[in-house]
């Protein structure tokens, strides 16, 4: 184990292995591979390791392979799901077709930290950086010698950065690009539905850098907000306190359209919450606690008491809000 194989050799060995098991290798390719194998003892050694990897997967009995494969794939699914949602297993996970509902991007990750629908959670990282996670949020943390990296897969987080004794820069990234804070407190939101990353800075400053347009760097300062996708950065506007009320466990609105408010509320609620077009433009102002038991039910009831609207329950998880 101690003797190191050169990375270039490893790369070549992987290439030849991947070709060798393809079932589409030509005679000429096979000859080239054999020449490569003979050319250097290190090549043969790297090849041994490829066989070693492959042998890890060989079942003792061939008949077991479909069983092993389906177990591994569905357990990977379940485990991811377990980490994402904090739910106990349900038999429906194993029925085919449910995977399609999930975002492929999400499927690639088993998040380091996650909250379920309606849950908020606070995390302090090893360097002292403090993160508040909003409902339905997934993030991965990767700290190494060079940098501290927080990847927001989806959802919303508020970050209060700590000064790192090792002076490593902190990078927050989403699918759209990266954010580089300068001694600060800020919130980042990425919903699967609107495909942009929203930034609100409450202290310090943060640089936004779209992934596919890395030469564009826009700095957002305290009291400002903006958003970007992988190509473009939107204009900067002033931030509103209501938009960060969630960090205090509140859902807050100031003259917000009912349909927008219900979209926000739906993030904390399992099921389907629909606003009829006639009720969509009714304006909502108020601050509602999110941490109480059945909080979203209470909020809906409070809305019904104060606004000219009516809740129609198809089921507990399927609610339409119409005009009274």
């Amino acid at each position: 184990m101690a003797n190191n194989i050169k990375p270039t050799t490893t790369k070549q060995a992987i290439h030849w292995f991947v070709r060798s098991v393809s079932g589409t290798m030509s005679d000429q390719e096979q000859e080239e591979r054999d020449q490569w194998l003979d050319a250097n003892p290190e090549h043969a050694q790297a090849w041994q390791r490829m066989q070693g990897i492959s042998s890890q997967l060989q079942p003792s009995e061939a008949s077991q392979s479909p069983l092993i494969r389906s177990t591994l794939v569905s357990s990977a699914n379940m485990q991811r799901r377990r980490l994402l949602k904090g739910l106990a297993w349900t038999s429906s996970l194993l029925t085919s077709g449910w995977i399609a509902k999930d975002q492929p991007f999400v499927l690639r990750h088993i998040a380091d930290f996650s909250t379920s629908t309606g849950e908020q959670h606070e995390v302090t990282l090893a360097d002292g950086t403090h993160i508040i996670m909003d409902t339905n949020t997934m993030l991965n943390i990767a700290f190494n010698d060079q940098q501290r990296h927080i990847k927001l897969i989806s959802g919303q987080i508020m970050i209060a950065t700590a000064k790192d004794p090792a002076m490593r820069p902190l990078i927050v990234s989403t699918e759209d690009g990266s954010l580089k804070p300068v001694g600060t407190r800020f919130s980042v939101r990425r919903d699967e539905s609107d495909k942009v990353t929203r930034l609100i800075v409450t202290a310090g400053a943060v640089e936004m850098r779209p992934a596919k347009n890395p030469n564009t760097v826009v700095t957002v300062y305290a009291g400002q907000q903006s958003y970007f996708d992988s190509m473009h950065v939107a204009a900067i506007s002033s931030a509103h306190e209501v938009d960060t009320a969630w960090t205090k466990g509140m859902l807050s609105a100031e003259r917000m359209r009912l349909s927008d408010f219900l979209n926000e509320l739906a993030r904390y609620r399992t099921g389907w919450l629909h606003c009829s077009p006639e009720a969509a433009d009714i304006l909502v102002t108020g601050t509602y606690p999110l941490h109480a038991r059945d909080a979203t039910d209470h909020i809906l009831n409070a809305l019904q008491e104060t606004l000219p609207i009516k809740l129609n329950f198809r089921t507990r998880y399927w609610i339409t809000v119409g005009k009274a």
Partner: peptide, 17 residues
């Protein structure tokens, strides 16, 4: 999960690409 599945189909079941 997709990569895992591909890898297993190749190495466990011995399917061609």
């Amino acid at each position: 999960i997709r990569t895992q599945q591909i890898f297993l189909l190749s190495q466990l079941d011995g399917l061609t690409y």
